[in-house]
């Protein structure tokens, strides 16, 4: 398989706890990969291992098929959750310095930075000190520093936090554009809306273990069950009465006056046709579609399942 990053049986132990427990992950090139999990699940430990800030205690990591080595660092860009820059240093000077540390020559770095500064309309900040910028402005600089060396793999830890909606959109568009241009992105976040919006694949880490992995579409499909939402006109009491024993009414929302939307869970042997046959005599059906759970629901459901499993 031609994944850009293969994580095989990686474990990380600290004195009093296990940060990662036999985690396997495979990240396909040219995709945006959502790394999800509650605080303390082990996401940061995993990211630090990929960045070679620390090493795994067990397992191995492969970058483009080669065992991960120091020289791969220049192919990786990392935006940590806790952002940080030298406060007293000038924006341009600082970006040049960090670019050169990544292995770019001064002229390469200059050219790349000029392009990014123009794209983000911040060319005028070159000689400003970081502590003269607003928080949002600092975030932009930080993002540029993460991507300026054109990494093949971009690791973004909560990239949207701290941005106003306009700049968050700017960053989101940039991330999508980078994917178009061939970059692979690992997006670590709690923000489920952004996961549904831009991620192609996801993995859920919980209590040091991977508990879910797949494409967003597949994961949703797999966990959607036999549920449908029906929009109709008519008496919702009559609608409820029309349902038989194998159809469970989960919730009903009134859209306007006698227009409603209800979610129905069908028994496994029933189809939407059975449902339509039952209700058409009673209400005026306006629409029917398969109800898919949000990533948020899936996240919570899966975590609850694990917790129940632990208690039993």
């Amino acid at each position: 398989m031609n994944s850009i990053l293969d994580i095989k049986g990686v474990s990380k132990f600290y004195t009093n706890h296990t940060a990662l427990d036999q985690v396997d992950l495979s990240i396909s090139p040219n995709k945006i990969f959502g790394l999800l999990g509650p605080n303390g699940a082990g996401k940061t430990s995993l990211i630090r291992i990929i960045n070679q800030i620390t090493g795994p205690d067990e397992g191995a990591i492969f970058f483009n098929g080669e065992p991960l080595q120091i020289h791969h660092q220049k192919n990786i860009g990392y935006l940590p959750e806790e952002r940080g820059l030298y406060k007293k240093m000038k924006v341009g000077e600082q970006a040049l310095y960090l670019a050169q540390l990544k292995g770019m020559s001064k002229s390469e770095a200059m050219a790349s930075l000029k392009e990014w500064f123009e794209k983000f309309e911040i060319s005028g900040w070159w000689n400003k000190r970081i502590d003269e910028l607003s928080k949002g402005m600092q975030q932009k600089v930080q993002f540029i520093i993460t991507v300026m060396h054109r990494p093949q793999l971009l690791i973004l830890d909560e990239p949207f936090s701290g941005f106003d909606p306009i700049n968050a959109k700017l960053i989101r568009d940039e991330i999508l554009k980078l994917r178009e241009e061939g970059t692979t992105v690992i997006l670590s976040t709690h923000n489920m809306a952004s996961v549904e919006e831009i991620c192609d694949d996801i993995a859920l880490i919980y209590q040091s273990k991977k508990i879910l992995e797949g494409s967003v579409h597949d994961v949703k499909e797999a966990r959607s069950g036999n549920e449908f939402s029906v929009t109709y006109q008519g008496d919702h009491m009559a609608f409820a009465k029309a349902l038989w024993i194998d159809a469970e009414l989960k919730e009903t929302k009134t859209i306007i006056n006698n227009k409603h939307c209800s979610t129905i869970k069908l028994a496994d042997n029933k189809t939407p046709n059975d449902l339509l046959n039952a209700i058409i005599p009673h209400v005026n059906v306006l629409g029917l579609e398969k109800a898919t759970p949000s990533m948020n629901d899936i996240f919570i459901d899966r975590v609850n399942e694990i917790n129940q499993g632990n208690h039993e």
Partner: peptide, 11 residues
Amino acid sequence: NRIVEIIITSV
């Protein structure tokens, strides 16, 4: 100020 985390991904 956490910049150390960025620097040690390069050195």
